[in-house]
Design a protein around this nucleic acid. Structure first.
Length: 279
DNA sequence: GTCCAGGTTTTTA
DNA sequence: TAAAAACATGGA
């Protein structure tokens, strides 16, 4: 990426902050400013805090060169060229083309697996605004404090041995016990995140569902957002409606190896156009 | 006050 | 085995 004199870099092809950070794949980013052609967001991932700006064709990552290379370049999936993927998916149907055109700058983040395990356990039977609240309280309760009010995502070991009432302050409801179970199973190596990383999508699906509170939908979310398995296809209530309305009788297989991305464009498009999916 | 949420587990028939 | 209820909580 080319840098200008004032520290700005050229915006990578097909990258939009709001589309990427507000599409339901992550829960810890907040807009500081959203105007036409200008966006500033802040967030924490991999134990680092970032402010990131986008001014149309230019961006500024407020971080060191080494943090950019080590954390943010992979996190925002900047090594992937989305153009051929869009071209491939657009051939599936005009609707798919519309969904991509609605948010062409949406990228699938490479989040930390453990964070996605927790985030999508919290997501079950829950609203997105409330999921964000639970995760924020979770980080404040058990995460390392980077700066005043800025907390890292809690480490697995900080949960081991806790009883569910220790999580009462985060008000996660029945999901608290699932989080503790997940931490235990990973800590005692009955569930191996590295094996999932190296294994197939099918293996990951089966392996993750050993954890209580993880069913097919949550497992697919974790594989797509935490392990970058592009074929993982989370089928939630929105996507069931979308598939039923737009692709009656079809399965995710029609989207091929990039089904997960197809899902993300359709999910975002559908969430912003609920009128399209009324039965 | 009611409804329902990026589901999954437990109970019931 | 399949369908229904329960699960905790609070944003809309």
């Amino acid at each position: 990426m080319k840098r200008t004199d004032n520290g700005m870099v050229e915006t990578p092809v097909l990258f939009d902050l709001r589309q990427t950070l507000d599409c339901g794949q992550c829960f810890r980013w907040q807009p500081l400013l959203e105007e036409d052609g200008c966006a500033i967001w802040e967030g924490i991932a991999f134990g680092s805090y970032l402010i990131i700006e986008q001014h149309r064709a230019f961006m500024r990552f407020h971080c060191s060169k080494s943090d950019f290379d080590r954390i943010w370049y992979p996190y925002f999936d900047l090594s992937t060229d989305y153009r051929p993927i869009h071209a491939r998916l657009s051939k599936v149907s005009p609707v798919m083309q519309d969904a991509i055109a609605y948010a062409p700058g949406l990228r699938i983040l490479r989040q930390q697996p453990w964070e996605t395990v927790c985030a999508f356990i919290f997501s079950q039977n829950n609203h997105i605004p409330r999921i964000k609240g639970i995760i924020a309280r979770f980080c404040e309760l058990l995460g390392q404090e980077l700066a005043a009010g800025q907390f890292c995502f809690p480490e697995i070991h900080s949960l081991v041995g806790l009883t569910p009432d220790a999580l009462d302050p985060i008000r996660a409801g029945f999901r608290a016990k699932y989080i503790l179970h997940a931490a235990q199973e990973i800590a005692n190596e009955r569930v191996s995140l590295s094996a999932i990383s190296e294994g197939s999508t099918a293996f990951g699906l089966a392996h993750l569902q050993k954890i209580k509170g993880i069913g097919p939908k949550v497992a697919n979310c974790i594989l797509l957002y935490g392990f970058h398995k592009y074929e993982a296809f989370p089928l939630d209530v929105w996507m069931q409606r979308a598939m039923h309305t737009l692709f009656p009788g079809k399965t995710p297989a029609i989207f091929g190896e990039y089904a997960g991305l197809a899902q993300q464009y359709l999910f975002h498009y559908g969430r912003m156009h609920p009128e399209l999916f009324k039965q």
